[in-house]
Structure formats: structure tokens, C-alpha cells
């Protein structure tokens, strides 16, 4: 799993299926980066991921709870149709912003990639 920090924004490049197995790895990595870098915004980039189940909802909701009280945002980009369906059925789109690419999300957040 790869990640990039740009000022207060963390981009997580989800690699492979976002299931329970990978969720635990992503959580650990994300939380270390969030603590170390005073992260406010998190972008989940699904370009290299085709699958997400309810474990992914936990990952995203958990990070949302970490940044919402400091006015941070969670974005999801490059999602395929089946991942979008999981987002919309679970109501994640009510709190997460969706963009085509990470740079679209970055420019809305106010940072350059």
C-alpha cells in the first residue's frame, strides 16, 4: 500500500481489494501518517482497486471520525462502478466527496498535487 503526504493532505493509493484483510493494513498505515504529519484531509485513490466490501466502509468512516472535528475532508477518487455502488448503498456519499482523479480532489481541497 502506497501513500503520499502533501502539506495537510494524505493520499492513500489503495492497492488490490479493500476487504477485511487489507483494511487492517491500510488502517495501520493511515493512522501512523495522520499522527506524524498533522493530516487534515485524506484522499482514497481506487485506481488500482476493483473491489470493496463493508470492511472498507469501516476504514473510511474511521478516518472520517479522526478528521471531521478539525474540519478535514475525506475524498474518494478513481472508483469503479461496483465500488461506487457500495458507497451509495451505505450512505458514504453523504459525508465523502467523490472526484474523478486525485488532482481534482487536491484542487478542491486547495492544494497542488
Amino acid at each position: 500500500m502506497q501513500a503520499k503526504v502533501k502539506n495537510n493532505t494524505l493520499i492513500i493509493y489503495v492497492n488490490g481489494d479493500l476487504d477485511h484483510h487489507n483494511a487492517e493494513k491500510i488502517k495501520k498505515m493511515a493512522d501512523t501518517k495522520i499522527m506524524e504529519n498533522q493530516i487534515k484531509n485524506v484522499i482514497f485513490d481506487f485506481e488500482n482497486s476493483n473491489f470493496m466490501d463493508s470492511s472498507g466502509i469501516g476504514v473510511i468512516m474511521g478516518r472520517y471520525k479522526m478528521v471531521e472535528n478539525i474540519g478535514g475532508k475525506i475524498c474518494a477518487v478513481n472508483m469503479n462502478q461496483s465500488i461506487k455502488r457500495i458507497f451509495s448503498i451505505s450512505g458514504l456519499f453523504k459525508i465523502i466527496d467523490q472526484y474523478d482523479t486525485a488532482s481534482d480532489a487536491m484542487s478542491v481541497i486547495g492544494e497542488e498535487e
Binding site: 488502517k27 466490501d53 463493508s54 466502509i57 469501516g58 476504514v59 468512516m61 474511521g62 457500495i86 448503498i89 451505505s90
Partner: peptide, 11 residues
């Protein structure tokens, strides 16, 4: 507490 959302059976 383990960040489960309770959506498994719904899906």
C-alpha cells in the same frame, strides 16, 4: 469498537 459498520447482512 473494531470499526465494523453493520452492513454485511444488508449487502
Amino acid at each position: 469498537d473494531k470499526e465494523r459498520s453493520g452492513m454485511g447482512f444488508s449487502f
